[in-house]
Simulated scan of single mutants.
Amino acid sequence: MKTIKVMIVDGSAVLRQVLSSVFEKEDGMEVIGVAADPVFAIEKMGKTWPDVLIVDIEMPRMDGITFLKKIMAEHPTPVIVFSTLTEKGSVATMQALAAGAVSVVTKPKLGLKLYLQESSEHLVRTVRTAAHAHLKRSGSSPSVTVPPKLTADAVLPAAEHVMEETTQTVIAIGTSTGGTLALETVLTALPRTSPGILIVQHMPEQFTEAFARRLDDICRISVTEARHGDQVMPGRALIAQGGRHMMLRRSGAQYYVDVVEGPPVSRHRPSVDVLFRSMAKFAGKNALGIIMTGMGDDGAKGLLEMHQMGALTIAQDEESCVVYGMPKEAIKLGAVDKIVALQQIAAEISACVNQTKL
């Protein structure tokens, strides 16, 4: 009987330890590795690939749904999602199954160690079943129709003229994989007098409110999940809701946000391209655009539009990115004025915010 190679990817050291002990006691099972987050897991899987992955959803640097989609697109592997968020009928459960998880197990919020010990037989059986799953690379089936990759035109027309300057500067930040920690680095370094900030972080919809609350607890500026009609104000950052686009709107000399439904743009909702286009359209040279770590190219075209409308534009450098995708694509388009390390972005905000682009 072939030995089933298992890898456990979870932020909890206790869970990794107890789950490992459960599987190591079983004949025909071997835990080939554990990792606190998907980025570490990817490094380890470069040496030995597992037969089954056990993955949490809430993890640093890359959430479990994004990791699951990446695995299914590049190297289809049976994945069991094990999370407190996957209660029956929850959005997270639907997202995990839609992304290709072969099984979803709900992790208890209390009494985790006892649960793992009492449910070991069920978990072992789930892993054995998963190991026999037959998977195809995402999108490889001829019966699957890949939706078109829409641009920001699907949500908002492009700017037709340069906006007049005002005394209020607005900052827009777009990021994806690796962005949760990157945003923490930037926002915790900003003073209360910082200009208003709008943020798109690619993240499942049930995460953004909790993510905003966590940042609000550790930052000097106020951080909240955006609501339709919120005013953009100094000392305040608004994070786009998962599952909805966020756009800047100008009324007189004041700025507000619109939180709207709409199709995915650059295959994301919220989309950085949508936010950046609205900045180009309604803020022009009053804006500062920042694109940070993330997979894909969402935000590259929007940042170019901001650049063309006179906004200052910054990209995170390759060395400090978890994934050098979005900044790289923006740089290739000629959309970026400055390339800086993550640790310097807050200082660049302070230095650039009241300057006029040369």
Results as ranks from 00 to 15, higher is better:
residue 1 M to L: 10
residue 7 M to W: 00
residue 14 V to I: 13
residue 16 R to G: 00
residue 25 K to N: 14
residue 25 K to A: 15
residue 27 D to Y: 08
residue 38 P to D: 01
residue 43 E to T: 13
residue 45 M to V: 06
residue 51 D to V: 04
residue 57 I to L: 12
residue 73 A to Y: 12
residue 73 A to D: 12
residue 74 E to I: 00
residue 74 E to Y: 13
residue 77 T to Y: 09
residue 91 V to R: 13
residue 92 A to W: 00
residue 99 A to M: 06
residue 103 S to H: 11
residue 104 V to L: 01
residue 109 K to H: 09
residue 120 S to Q: 15
residue 135 L to Y: 09
residue 147 P to F: 09
residue 150 L to R: 15
residue 155 V to A: 06
residue 160 E to K: 14
residue 170 V to M: 07
residue 170 V to G: 12
residue 171 I to M: 01
residue 176 S to L: 07
residue 178 G to M: 09
residue 182 A to S: 12
residue 184 E to M: 00
residue 185 T to G: 07
residue 186 V to S: 10
residue 193 T to I: 05
residue 193 T to K: 14
residue 200 V to K: 11
residue 206 Q to N: 14
residue 206 Q to S: 13
residue 207 F to N: 01
residue 210 A to M: 09
residue 211 F to P: 02
residue 215 L to Y: 00
residue 217 D to I: 06
residue 218 I to A: 12
residue 225 E to D: 06
residue 227 R to I: 11
residue 232 V to W: 04
residue 233 M to K: 15
residue 234 P to N: 12
residue 235 G to M: 06
residue 248 L to C: 03
residue 248 L to Q: 11
residue 250 R to F: 09
residue 255 Y to W: 01
residue 263 P to R: 13
residue 270 P to V: 11
residue 272 V to R: 03
residue 273 D to W: 00
residue 275 L to A: 08
residue 276 F to E: 04
residue 284 G to F: 04
residue 292 M to K: 03
residue 297 D to F: 00
residue 301 K to F: 01
residue 302 G to V: 02
residue 309 M to P: 11
residue 317 D to G: 08
residue 318 E to W: 05
residue 320 S to G: 08
residue 326 M to F: 03
residue 329 E to Y: 06
residue 342 L to K: 05
residue 352 C to Q: 15
residue 356 T to D: 13
